[in-house]
Simulated scan of single mutants.
Amino acid sequence: MRCLAVLLLYSSSIPLSSAQKATPKSPGIASDQVAIRYARGFNIRYAGKYKYVSIINPFEKKVDTIRYVLVQRGTPPPKGYSPSQVIEVPLRSMVLMSSMHVGLAAFLGAEDQIVGLANLTYVSSPNVIARIKAGKVKEIGRDQTINEEQLVTMHPDLVMTMGSPNARMDRYSILKGAGIPVLINSEWVENTPLGRAEWVKLMAALLNKEKLVNQKFGYVEQEYKRLTSLAKQVKHKPLIISGINMKDAWYVPDGNSFMTRFFLDAGGSYPWTSRKATGSLPLNFETVYPYALKADYWLNVSIMASDSKQSILAKDARYADFKAFKTGQMYDYNKRTNSQGSNDYWESGVVNPHLVLADMIKILHPDLLPKHKLVYYRQLN
């Protein structure tokens, strides 16, 4: 993930099969409401005309929850909420501080509501790129370089920012004072792929698109579970290593991370599943080396779409000792990287975990999905 390392497919880009076009409703959910089943970082409660949103801060030692009330445009808010906690819906305009947030909007066909981004370079959505070229989307900046004066002038209905250990809500006091709500999105710390994808339901609540998200996410959920059940049939679970040594550390997915969940759901085995931590685990080369010598597959090798086996070998000659290097079983998730260097895996891939899982199953157990062609992953040559 870009934020950890520096962590709807668009219908115009990847055609859907007839089976994928079927979008059954999730059972037990009213069409105008959403129920949260997988995500741990937020919740939504419906009461009368209002939607009550709770965002759980995962970075504090004590439980810290930020609360918002979503009010239908033109309706007075309930008592007990400050102006900074009130968000009028449906959103007409929004500023998004992560490319993943673009994926949420694109999944619901809401790219036209995007008026600002942290960085205009890292975008994959063709619709948003067209809006950028037309001058309809402004670059806002990141972290301490956010152009608050520009934001106040634009006055969007919402700024969606990324949660991080260093993020502080008082950082946005100027925006809140100007009546611009700021909502923290911490999807990247969810520990399951469906949990990360389910943040699209929060976007749906902001857009009054609950019926649409129930249909589309219902299909994603159904397919992910079907593929997981398919992979459970395998008797041999190939060993996977992930990542690459960067300077003084080799960052691997920790045992309770969403990427480890992908590995296991795809029918693989992974050395650090006994650990209960999330995020990334920094190791030295010598710790990874014994596993790498016998690992059947080496996944997520590099973030560079231009990398090859030889360019990887040039970084450290010891990589030639790895079993996966010798057999050529090395794969990256950067197949859909555009000319600007933006990787769609971190945009549309987040809200389409069933396609990411299908890629992994195709890599690890090709006979299970003989007709599937890799969407996000590519083999290094």
Rank of each mutant, 00 (worst) to 15 (best):
L9S: 08
S12F: 13
S13E: 10
S13I: 15
P15D: 13
K21G: 02
P24G: 04
S31T: 00
Q33C: 12
I36Y: 14
Y38W: 15
R45Y: 12
R45A: 15
E60K: 08
D64G: 02
V69N: 01
V86I: 13
V102K: 08
G103P: 10
A106T: 10
A106M: 06
P126S: 15
K136F: 10
I140M: 15
R142L: 08
Q144C: 07
T161M: 10
L175T: 04
A178R: 02
L183F: 00
N185W: 07
V189P: 04
E190K: 08
L202F: 15
L206D: 00
S229G: 03
A231L: 12
I240R: 05
I241Q: 14
S242F: 08
N245S: 12
P253S: 03
N256K: 01
F258Q: 07
D265I: 06
S269K: 00
S274Y: 04
K276G: 09
F285P: 10
P290L: 03
Y291T: 06
S302R: 01
I303H: 08
M304T: 02
M304D: 14
K309C: 03
K309H: 09
S311I: 10
D316F: 08
A317L: 11
R318E: 03
R318Y: 02
S339K: 13
S348L: 04
S348T: 15
A358V: 07
I363V: 13
I363L: 06
P370N: 09
H372P: 03
